Amino acid sequence: MKTIPPGSTIGIVGGGQLGRMLGMAAAQLGYRIHVFAPASGPANDVASAFTEASYHQSHRLAAFAEACDVVTYEFENVPVGALALIADKVPVLPGLNALEIAQVRYAEKAFVQDLGGRTAPFGVANDFEELIPVLERIGVPAIIKTIRMGYDGKGQARIDAPGDARQAWHAVKRQPSIVEGFVDFSHEFSILIARGHDGASVTYKPTWNVHRGGILHRAVVPAPAAIAGQAAEAAALAERVADALDYVGVLALEFFATAEGPVFNEMAPRVHNSGHWTIEGAQTSQFENHIRAICGLPLGSSALTAAGVEMENLIGDEVERWPEILAERGAHLHLYGKDEARPGRKMGHVTRLIG
């Protein structure tokens, strides 16, 4: 693929905060962005053009593609069929194979197992009758998750005893689901890798992720020793995944640190919340490296800019802390411009450099 030079237009499918931060990184390198989304969102604030349309409106998608030099996406639940409609008109990166695998939870785990990665024991239940034998094989406690969609703890339920199965099935709205056995872990962490058209890649330091209510609360670098000792194996798996997908852009893989080694949880074929610290904490942010990768530019260094970094998400009305955060020496505040601070909604984040 030829280099897409500054001054070109990057299409972003999805209008959320990840699109906003991608747009800001693109603008720094001299690109324009064109957002395609069903409704106005945070990315619009930094866009030079916006198409408001359903992902199923093929004529609007075609016009959007004609206006862009390359297209990327900022969330993994965008309909693959929508992007397939435009893939012959404009490069769509990362490729659709990554999106197809990441959207189906059991396919994702099987794919990683084939590449030598560890996963939790799992099975598939398309209806309640299939759920019971899966639970008998895997055991309880277990987690049931819808095969498609769902994030930040949504679309899933815990099963502590066989008698909880029916309630859990209704909690996931009787949708085809994956059932996962519990993993005994000490920490959760993620590996972010940026890979270019030529196969060159850079990997960021492993990030310790601390969740609260199923939503990422803090991301910390450097990670504790329990994670650091497993980072090389996890990063090697991330590289195999990226190579197998012929991936272009930033890819995030989430892991559990266990006594047996890193256990793969899930992947996101996009920039990721656990990598927001890279804006101030790395020499090249995940957002800039994603733009560099999809445009065929050399990747930037992922080295740290400080001895340590901590990112804290501002969820719901936590955003009202903005005055005290601005008064805090060394704190870097990012607000997403959302108009309503609902419970569980990511309204912004703050990054603190340490040392």
Rank of each mutant, 00 (worst) to 15 (best):
S8Q: 01
N273W: 02
I143L: 09
S54Q: 12
A282N: 06
H34E: 05
R60W: 08
G199A: 03
A194C: 00
H349R: 05
A223E: 05
I10S: 14
S301L: 12
V134C: 14
K205I: 10
Q167Y: 02
D339W: 10
A232R: 13
G139E: 04
L115K: 01
H187V: 11
V172E: 04
T207A: 11
A98L: 12
I144F: 04
N289C: 05
M21Y: 08
S186F: 04
A87L: 01
P343V: 12
G123N: 00
G16M: 13
I138V: 14
I159P: 11
H276L: 06
A168T: 07
V140H: 04
E76L: 14
T305E: 09
V90L: 13
Y151F: 05
G348N: 10
E324T: 15
E318T: 07
P262I: 07
V210K: 05
K109Q: 12
K145V: 03
H332E: 08
D198H: 10
E324A: 06
G153Y: 04
E129T: 11
E239K: 00
D152E: 11
G199V: 01
E318F: 01
V104G: 06
G261S: 10
G308C: 02
G316E: 04
V112E: 07
A171P: 06
A219P: 09
G199E: 10
E312T: 15
G163T: 15
